[in-house]
Amino acid sequence: MRRGLVHVLAWLLATGAAVTLSWWGVHTVMAGTAYDPPRALPLTAAEATATSQDSRPPPSGNSVASPSPGPSRGPATRTPAPSRTPDASASPSPSAVSSSPAASGTVKSYDTDGGRVVFDLRKTYATLVSATPGAGWSMQVWKTEAWIRVEFASGADRVSVFCTWHDGPPRVEVGTY
C-alpha cells in the first residue's frame, strides 16, 4: 500500500511539473504576440441615416407585416455589374465612408462583385481596415511594406483590390480577371 502511494505521489509531482512547464512556455510565447484591438470607425451622419433607412423593410400598402430579416453584418447594397469585362463603367468607384479631421487619413470603401474592402489611406501609407467577401466568394490578403492586395475568388472569377504607396501617396486599383 505504501509503495502504491509513493508511485501515485511521484506521478502527481511529475505531471504537475510538466503542466507547469508547458503553461509557462505557452504563456511566454503568447505574451509576445499581443495584437492591437480592432478599431471602431466613426460613421458620418449621412452614412448613419442611410444605414438605418436601408435596414428597414419597405413600406407596404397592406396590413400584413413582412418578416424581419435575421441579424446582418450591415446593409446589403451590393449590385451586380452588368458585365465581367474590365472597362471604365464596370470598375467600382470608391466612396468615402468617413473622414475625421483629427485623423490624417481618409477611410475609403471599395465595393466589388467579390466583396467589400475598406482602407485607411494616409499621406505616405495605407492600412487595411476590413475585407469582407460576398456570398459564394473566398478571400485572400497579402501585405508588404509598400502594398496590400485583397483577392476575391469564386470558381474561375477573380477580383483583385490592390493598394500601393511605394512611390507616392496610396492609390487603389480594382481589377477583374
Score class of each variant (00 low, 15 high):
39 R>K: 15
40 A>R: 14
41 L>I: 06
41 L>D: 01
41 L>V: 11
41 L>S: 05
42 P>D: 02
42 P>A: 04
42 P>T: 01
42 P>R: 00
43 L>A: 13
43 L>M: 15
43 L>C: 09
44 T>H: 05
44 T>I: 05
44 T>A: 12
45 A>V: 15
45 A>N: 09
45 A>G: 07
47 E>L: 13
47 E>S: 03
47 E>F: 04
49 T>Y: 12
49 T>L: 12
49 T>M: 13
49 T>C: 12
49 T>V: 15
50 A>S: 10
50 A>I: 01
50 A>R: 03
50 A>V: 02
52 S>M: 11
52 S>Q: 13
52 S>V: 15
52 S>L: 14
53 Q>L: 13
54 D>F: 15
54 D>I: 09
54 D>T: 14
55 S>G: 08
55 S>D: 15
56 R>P: 01
56 R>G: 04
56 R>Y: 13
56 R>W: 12
57 P>E: 03
57 P>I: 00
57 P>M: 04
58 P>A: 10
58 P>Y: 07
58 P>G: 09
58 P>F: 06
58 P>S: 11
59 P>D: 06
59 P>F: 09
59 P>K: 03
60 S>E: 10
60 S>V: 12
60 S>G: 14
60 S>H: 11
60 S>Y: 08
60 S>I: 10
61 G>L: 10
62 N>D: 13
62 N>Q: 08
62 N>R: 04
62 N>P: 00
63 S>Y: 06
63 S>M: 07
63 S>H: 07
64 V>P: 01
64 V>D: 08
64 V>L: 10
64 V>N: 08
64 V>F: 09
64 V>K: 10
65 A>L: 14
65 A>C: 08
65 A>I: 08
66 S>R: 11
67 P>C: 04
67 P>G: 06
67 P>Y: 07
68 S>H: 14
69 P>H: 10
69 P>D: 05
69 P>V: 08
69 P>T: 14
70 G>R: 05
70 G>L: 06
70 G>V: 04
70 G>Y: 08
71 P>N: 06
71 P>S: 06
71 P>K: 04
71 P>W: 06
72 S>I: 06
72 S>M: 09
72 S>Q: 15
72 S>Y: 03
74 G>E: 03
74 G>C: 01
74 G>Q: 02
76 A>N: 09
76 A>C: 11
77 T>I: 14
77 T>N: 08
78 R>D: 02
79 T>M: 11
79 T>C: 14
79 T>L: 11
79 T>P: 01
79 T>S: 11
80 P>N: 09
80 P>R: 05
81 A>L: 01
81 A>W: 00
81 A>V: 00
82 P>I: 02
82 P>G: 04
82 P>T: 03
82 P>K: 01
82 P>D: 03
83 S>I: 02
83 S>V: 00
84 R>H: 09
84 R>G: 06
85 T>K: 00
85 T>E: 02
86 P>V: 04
86 P>Y: 07
87 D>T: 07
87 D>N: 10
88 A>N: 10
89 S>W: 07
89 S>C: 12
89 S>I: 08
90 A>W: 01
90 A>F: 00
90 A>I: 00
90 A>M: 03
91 S>M: 06
91 S>I: 02
91 S>E: 05
92 P>G: 02
92 P>E: 00
93 S>A: 12
94 P>Y: 05
94 P>C: 05
94 P>G: 05
94 P>Q: 05
94 P>I: 01
95 S>T: 10
95 S>A: 15
95 S>P: 00
96 A>E: 12
96 A>T: 14
97 V>H: 03
